[in-house]
């Protein structure tokens, strides 16, 4: 504190330097925001401009790619939506109960060695590439137990990718529930399990729903498990237990071999169309999740 205090407020030269730093930081932060936005807007624009005319064709949402070749226009995406929806739904039905219970265990009951080990395992699982998860399921169910490739195995591989996402968000959301609420409930003579079911989880509900939606968005676009465990069928196949199945990532991938074809552009159109369809579906799910979350939102 050797510097002399400025005699007048306006005369302080430090004020000017501080204002300049403030402006500089504001500019930098805003620029970073803009740069981060560029790829997002670019991607959305590209997919939208190239895919819009395909998804507005008649029959796009209701028909399959049966008997459609790269030399023919038309056909739709229904078989792919159905396959993806079935696989993701089964995956969600398996993952959500497991992940919620693990998250609740780690936050409400954990603290011991088992909890530390579990948390570590969830960390590892988070980093597993989808193709490794797919190979694991292939090794267990197809090589060892001699199963045939089918949609159900895709669901199982996706479970391994979805569980850690939901566990982590559930943990974060439960941590946000103030301890005072738990104590208030205990002080009313409410047992611990009921406090968790009736007080803690409802308070964190909207966040947990968001976590589940993040999980769905994470797995809906996964491609490696599809290629390894079910393949791709241009026909509608609603049977998760046997046969090739259509899927949105699978349909995108199936168009790739004809992308360089100069005479026929139908494959390329279909690829952009199915990419746009996948984005629309994931966005719609996110919107639904937000509505659900808002309806149950904690009012303050």
């Amino acid at each position: 504190m050797t510097a002399a205090a400025p005699t007048t407020l306006a005369g302080s030269s430090k004020g000017g330097v501080r204002a300049f730093k403030n402006t500089l930081a504001t500019v930098l932060v805003t620029a970073a925001f803009g740069i981060a936005l560029i790829p997002l807007v670019w991607l959305l624009w590209t997919v939208l401009s190239k895919g819009l005319k395909t998804i507005t064709q008649s029959g796009w949402w209701t028909s399959s790619q049966r008997n459609i070749t790269y030399r023919k226009p038309g056909g739709g995406v229904w078989h792919a939506i159905l396959g993806t929806a079935e696989q993701v739904l089964l995956c969600t039905l398996i993952s959500v109960p497991i992940a919620l219970l693990v998250g609740i265990y780690l936050i409400e009951y954990g603290g011991g060695r088992l909890a530390k080990l579990t948390s570590f395992m969830v960390d590892i699982l988070t980093g597993i590439p989808s193709i490794v998860a797919a190979l694991f399921i292939y090794a267990v169910f197809i090589t060892t137990f001699h199963g045939q490739r089918a949609g159900i195995y895709v669901s199982l591989a996706l479970v391994m990718l979805m569980v850690p996402v939901i566990v982590r968000t559930t943990e974060e959301m439960l941590k946000l529930v103030p301890n005072e609420l738990r104590e208030a409930s205990y002080a009313l003579g409410v047992p611990k399990w009921k406090t968790i079911v009736k007080i803690v989880v409802p308070t964190a509900f909207s966040g947990i729903v968001t976590g589940i939606m993040l999980g769905i968005a994470r797995v809906a676009g996964e491609t490696a498990p599809l290629l390894i465990l079910v393949g791709y069928s241009p026909d509608t196949n609603s049977n998760l237990l046997s046969g090739f199945q259509g899927s949105l990532p699978g349909m995108i991938y199936a168009q790739v071999p004809q992308l360089g074809n100069i005479r026929y552009h139908y494959a390329a159109d279909r690829m952009w169309g199915s990419a746009l369809t996948l984005i629309i579906i994931v966005m719609a799910l996110n919107l639904v999740a937000r509505l659900v979350a808002r309806r149950s939102k904690v009012s303050n």
Binding site: E180, E183, A184, A187, T203, F205
Partner: peptide, 15 residues
């Protein structure tokens, strides 16, 4: 259940 408690900060259940 026999001995109730009121805390320092009001903590009604927010939901």
């Amino acid at each position: 259940r026999t001995i109730g408690m009121v805390f320092q900060r009001p903590n009604p259940f927010p939901t």
